[in-house]
Amino acid sequence: MDVFMKGLSKAKEGVVAAAEKTKQGVAEAAGKTKEGVLYVGSKTKEGVVHGVATVAEKTKEQVTNVGGAVVTGVTAVAQKTVEGAGSIAAATGFVKKDQLGKNEEGAPQEGILEDMPVDPDNEAYEMPSEEGYQDYEPEA
């Protein structure tokens, strides 16, 4: 019985440690998101679009440190934060509304985080759909 109880105690310690790591990862992701939003706020009209992409990228980098179902929630929060940063930029006159959601080359930025393969159960990952990809044929 002692062996059984000791095993359960060790398992509990492992769960607590994993929860603490997840909590730490979420806190880091939130900190990076805040950094990115402050970065966007300090940019001029020309830099705002690039700044919004930076927020998304920093958040995406930190999301990889967070495991399990938390990833889905962090990704949703990050996307809403990026959308909010863009709205703030438009409201303050840093950028025109028609410039939001495009990178410096004018290509749409939507789907940055949505296409990231995420499995809350950590069982399997699927690649994003290939609808947006084109076949590449090298020139002879």
Rank of each mutant, 00 (worst) to 15 (best):
V16E: 04
G86W: 06
E139W: 13
V16W: 05
D135C: 11
E46R: 00
V77P: 03
P138H: 07
V63I: 10
F94W: 10
D115L: 08
P117R: 04
T33I: 09
V48M: 09
K58Q: 05
A91H: 10
G132I: 12
G41N: 01
T22H: 02
A27L: 12
N103C: 13
V74G: 03
G132K: 14
E61G: 01
V3M: 10
K97I: 14
A56N: 07
K12E: 00
E130C: 07
E126P: 11
Q99W: 12
K23D: 00
T72A: 08
A29P: 00
A19L: 15
E130D: 05
E137W: 05
A140R: 11
E114K: 06
T81L: 03
E35Q: 09
V77D: 03
V74P: 02
A91T: 02
V74L: 12
G41F: 11
M5Y: 01
K43Y: 15
A76H: 12
G106P: 08
K21H: 08
V15M: 12
A29Q: 04
A27P: 00
E28R: 14
K34W: 02
E126G: 05
T75A: 14
K21R: 05
E123A: 06
A76N: 01
V3T: 00
A90W: 09
N122E: 02
D121A: 06
G67Q: 11
I112N: 09
Q79H: 02
A69C: 03
D98L: 09
G36K: 08
G47H: 15
M1D: 02
M127R: 14
S129E: 13
E13H: 08
E137L: 09
E130T: 05
D98W: 05
A107C: 11
E131P: 14
E61H: 08
Q99A: 10
V26N: 00
M127S: 12
E83M: 14
V37A: 10
T75H: 02
P120R: 10
E28L: 07
G67W: 09
G36N: 15
K96D: 09
E104F: 13
G47E: 02
V3L: 07
V66E: 01
M5S: 04
V74W: 10
L113S: 13
T44E: 00
A140E: 12
M5Q: 01
E137M: 11
A56L: 03
K43H: 04
H50E: 04
V49D: 01
G31F: 10
T22W: 04
G25S: 14
D119I: 02
G68Y: 09
K12Q: 01
N103F: 12
V82K: 12
G132Y: 14
A85W: 02
E20W: 15
G86T: 05
F4T: 00
G7P: 01
G106R: 01
A107V: 06
G68N: 15
D2Y: 12
A19C: 06
V49A: 14
Y133P: 15
N65K: 11
Q109E: 11
V74A: 12
T75D: 04
N103A: 10
Q99V: 10
E105R: 06
G73R: 13
I88N: 00
T59R: 02
V37S: 01
K6Y: 08
T33H: 04
E110L: 01
G51P: 02
K80H: 09
A89R: 13
D119P: 07
K58T: 13
E13R: 02
G106W: 13
E105N: 13
T59W: 15
A27K: 15
L100D: 12
G93R: 08
T44S: 07
K21E: 02
Y136R: 13
N65D: 04
A30H: 00
Y133H: 02
V77T: 07
D119F: 09
D119R: 12
I112M: 11
A17V: 03
H50Q: 01
N65W: 11
T92C: 04
V3Q: 05
E137D: 07
K34T: 05
V37P: 00
A107Q: 10
Y125E: 14
A56G: 02
E105Y: 12
L100K: 01
K97D: 15
K97S: 10
K12L: 15
V49E: 06
Y125Q: 08
V48P: 14
A69S: 07
K43F: 01
E130N: 10
G68Q: 03
T44K: 01
Q62H: 06
K12R: 02
S42A: 15
E139I: 13
V118H: 14
A19S: 01
S129G: 09
E28D: 11
L113W: 03
G25Q: 15
